[in-house]
């Protein structure tokens, strides 16, 4: 997730040592909202040493995520690459912001979805498309970003960013 490809206006907030914004000397004015949201999500995780605790927190987030109506759990909205089923919808609101709606049939996966929504929902298409999601490393989920992991986190992030790209194109066309 450190790649800054597709980053328009949003600069990567990593310095050469790989420090996250908290310790970074670089200013990232365009991404302050994104960074503030990531900080908030990361703080929610506290300092869990134990994976059981992390998953319990994800499960709590998952339980709080409003369910999608059954009618929206359609084949076309399914994200490939997850062992559990994940449905994702995205549209632009009146202010030109990306509004995501998503659901999953596993609670831990719902928690991951909820977390990504907290970070990316309501941003501009450009911000979504170029988002550097450093918080995943902060909370220890970076290793779960491999496409071969069964949780589908990588597939979800990719799908959300692709919506950002597509909606950006629509907004400017």
């Amino acid at each position: 997730m450190r790649s800054s490809t597709g980053c328009s206006g949003l600069r990567a907030c990593w310095d050469d040592a790989g420090n996250t914004p908290g310790s970074s000397p670089y200013l990232c004015p365009m991404s302050s909202e994104l960074d503030a949201r990531q900080t908030a999500v990361a703080e929610g995780f506290g300092f869990f040493d134990d994976w059981s605790d992390r998953y319990e927190h994800l499960i709590e987030l998952g339980k709080e995520l409003p369910a999608l109506p059954e009618a929206d759990k359609v084949e076309e909205a399914l994200i490939r690459g997850c062992q559990s089923r994940v449905w994702l919808h995205a549209a632009l609101d009146a202010d030109g912001k990306v509004r995501f709606r998503a659901d999953a049939d596993a609670l831990i996966t719902r928690g991951i979805v909820a977390m990504l929504l907290q970070v990316l929902d309501g941003l501009t298409p450009a911000e979504v498309a170029g988002a550097e999601l450093w918080f995943l490393e902060r909370i220890g989920l970076q290793a779960h970003l491999s496409p071969t992991r069964a949780n589908g986190l990588e597939a979800m992030v990719r799908a959300m960013k692709l919506y950002g790209v597509a909606l950006q194109a629509r907004a400017t066309s």
Binding site: W51, S52, R54, Y55, Q83, S84, L107, T109, A150, N151
Partner: peptide, 21 residues
């Protein structure tokens, strides 16, 4: 009603390797 994935992931957090899916 819980997804096998949830059960398998929570078991893995306790070092228990099972198959789900």
């Amino acid at each position: 009603p819980h997804a096998p994935y949830d059960v398998g992931t929570l078991l893995d957090a306790r070092g228990i390797a099972v198959r789900t899916g």
